[in-house]
Design a protein around this nucleic acid. Structure first.
Lengths: 189, 189
DNA sequence: AAGAAACTAATTGCACAAAAATAGTTTCCA
DNA sequence: TGGAAACTATTTTTGTGCAATTAGTTTCTT
């Protein structure tokens, strides 16, 4: 793995441990390299953060592309899978936490918002396809979107999963399952 | 309406206008009575708040009882209706806002938490009945609970409804619709 | 009995300064 | 070339005194 990517992955780790208040010294220590080396790759902390956001979302887009182009899947299967792609990446980095950067790093916040928003384009067009095919009910897509996003947030904010001894993957599958079955028309059963 | 109830209802109004930082002077002005009169009914602000929480949740319990005892409803119909009862009361008072009282009024916060938690007893036992009847899938109930609660929070936190020109009732119906259909077994279709 | 208004003790918000932490640079060394 | 550590300018945090606000009480009035 190239240095640039190692730094980004290390940033995720240190972000998940220390929260958004990690220092560049923390990161250097975590990576076992000196700050000097970090600054040979990135001009400053903000640029590094921005690169991290792109890195994360590019990974998501890649996974989505796989789902969309897989010829063996029906539209409903595609929706079921694609609804799990972005949430799965939450395991690497709690994107919701990035919202807390609003004040200190408005640029990063804006980028996260923009990419979270545009990240739904593929999903939305899949759902619209499903609606045209008649397999998906005519629901308000923003509400569905909100339900998924809100549920994910809760996984991290509260300790529901721990309390109920449910793994993240199980919970995610169940949420997606409920949502997908909830938007199907009867005819597929 | 008796004085006690008038004060509680007035507190809701003033709470919704001024937020949780309303003063007792605000409340007295809103009610058109003097603080003295308020203090003849309640010993202090905290007690009044606690009484308000009980008042609200007792109202919810009452509505729930109607749904549960209605002999004309199937279990699924009951679930569909009961899932709308608590959310409907959010229109009177944003219970989510009460969470912000955590620091200043920990007692009230604890009471809200406790009643929000125990407020699910009826719903949970209905869902369990549905599962025994075989009309509801064997899902993790805490996850369903979390999905509904998280969605409601979002209605207030973000301006999704306004942006998409959806009324609260429409959105609520849609959320409940998706959740209920999402937990049904196939056999009811 | 209840409202209006004044009153007080306590709490809160705020300005501002001192102290601590940190981003980014530089020096030295292997 | 890159790590360790020292360094500095800036930012963030913390503490404090002062002014404003407010919960709860009291007094006076109708």
């Amino acid at each position: 793995m190239e240095l640039r990517e190692e730094i980004l992955v290390g940033t995720m780790r240190v972000f998940n441990i220390k929260g958004l208040k990690f220092t560049m010294d923390d990161l250097a220590r975590e990576l076992g390299i000196s700050k000097k080396t970090i600054y040979t790759v990135f001009d400053n902390k903000e640029d590094m953060f921005l690169a991290l956001v792109d890195y994360l979302f590019d990974g998501i887009k890649e996974e989505e592309a796989k789902v969309i182009t897989d010829p063996n899947l029906s539209t409903v299967d595609r929706i079921r899978k694609i609804l799990g792609v972005m949430p799965a990446s939450y395991r690497d980095l709690d994107l919701g936490q990035l919202y807390l950067l609003k004040d200190k790093y408005p640029k990063i916040y804006a980028k996260v918002e923009e990419r979270l928003e545009s990240g739904w384009e593929n999903t939305i067009s899949l759902i619209e396809t499903g609606q045209k095919e008649g397999v998906i009910r005519p629901i308000h897509i923003p509400i569905l979107k909100m339900m998924l996003e809100a549920s994910l947030e809760q996984f991290f904010r509260r300790d529901i999963l721990i309390k109920n001894k449910i793994t993240y993957q199980t919970a995610l599958d169940e949420v997606v399952g409920i949502l997908v079955d909830g938007i199907l028309t009867g005819q597929t059963h």
